[in-house]
């Protein structure tokens, strides 16, 4: 290796190191540490942490709460991902068509995104409150009985889903709106001359041209469906009886409420595996259908 080549090598590493250091200390190292910790027992008092092989995983398979939160998370994802994406697309199409140039209205849709999820949760707390919450007040107008939406095991999860959709749709809409504005109006004219209906034009032209955005948005939506749990802290704390608990919330409880760090590490490993599989699968599945300009 010549001197100058060696120098370049040094430069390369120097430039990479800040990002690398941060990434390794706060992402890679903790992830690997968690995976390792999942094969050990939790240290309690004088008892040292010892290697216990797959014991934690056996516990996990037998843990009804784990299955409960996993299924909750599944339904949470199944509802929030498509609904928030569909809603954001509909809003973007509407804003793009009818409200061209009204930056103020666009901002209005974006507000939920700017607000911290904790603040959003407080707003929705007011909507849901039995008796004098907004929803019950409206129901009252029609002489419908009070309903404790967040307190009932049947509806608690759905109250969380509604908040997440409300929060995410505005954010995704901005991406769709930006993408819609890059579609030249002459394409619409060309399709109109050929007699394509609005629906046909959307299905065959607009939607395919939005595919890169849809891919981006849906990966975000998937990750968020496992990541966004702040509102649960404020609104239901996972209750009643874990009806609205999600995987990440359960991990938090296990680690910092029950201090079973090894079991929390096991749950984290499972969460990591799920996210990895989903991200990769999604990327390969959708990438084939995406037209990049």
């Amino acid at each position: 290796m010549t001197n100058s080549a060696r120098l370049q090598w040094v430069y390369a590493w120097l430039l990479l190191s800040p990002a690398l250091v941060l990434l390794v200390t706060f992402t890679h190292y903790p992830a690997i540490k968690s995976i390792i910790a999942s094969f050990y027992s939790t240290a309690r008092g004088k008892r040292q942490s010892v290697y216990i092989g797959l014991d934690n995983y056996h516990t996990l398979v037998a843990d009804p709460v784990f299955w409960k939160v996993l299924s909750n998370n599944f339904w949470y994802a199944v509802w929030t991902i498509p609904l928030s994406i569909a809603l954001s697309l509909i809003m973007a199409l509407w804003v793009n068509e009818k409200l061209r140039g009204l930056a103020f209205l666009r901002m209005a849709y974006f507000t939920p995104t700017v607000l911290p999820l904790i603040a959003v949760a407080n707003i929705w707390l007011f909507f849901y409150t039995p008796g004098f919450g907004l929803i019950d007040q409206i129901r009252g107008l029609f002489d419908l009985p009070e309903q404790n939406w967040m307190g009932s095991p049947n509806t608690a999860l759905y109250t969380m889903i509604a908040v997440a959709i409300w929060k995410e749709a505005g954010f995704f809409m901005i991406f769709y709106l930006a993408a819609l504005q890059t579609i030249p109006p002459s394409l619409r004219d060309a399709a109109a001359i050929e007699g394509a209906s609005k629906v046909y034009f959307f299905r065959r032209v607009v939607f395919p041209l939005l595919m890169p955005t849809t891919l981006f948005v849906s990966i975000n939506a998937v990750i968020n469906s496992f990541r966004l749990v702040d509102h649960i802290f404020v609104m239901t704390e996972g209750g009643p009886n874990n009806a609205s608990s999600l995987l990440l919330f359960y991990i938090y409880e296990t680690a910092f409420k029950y201090w079973d760090t090894a079991y929390a590490a096991t749950l984290t490993t499972v969460l990591l595996m799920i996210l990895t599989v989903l991200a990769i699968g999604q990327f390969f599945f959708l990438d084939k259908r995406v037209h990049y300009k």
Binding site: S186, A190, L209
Partner: peptide, 14 residues
């Protein structure tokens, strides 16, 4: 009964 050719061609990129 008209066909039209646009300045920007308006071809569908995908």
């Amino acid at each position: 009964d008209i066909a039209m050719v646009f300045q920007s061609y308006a071809l569908f990129p995908h």
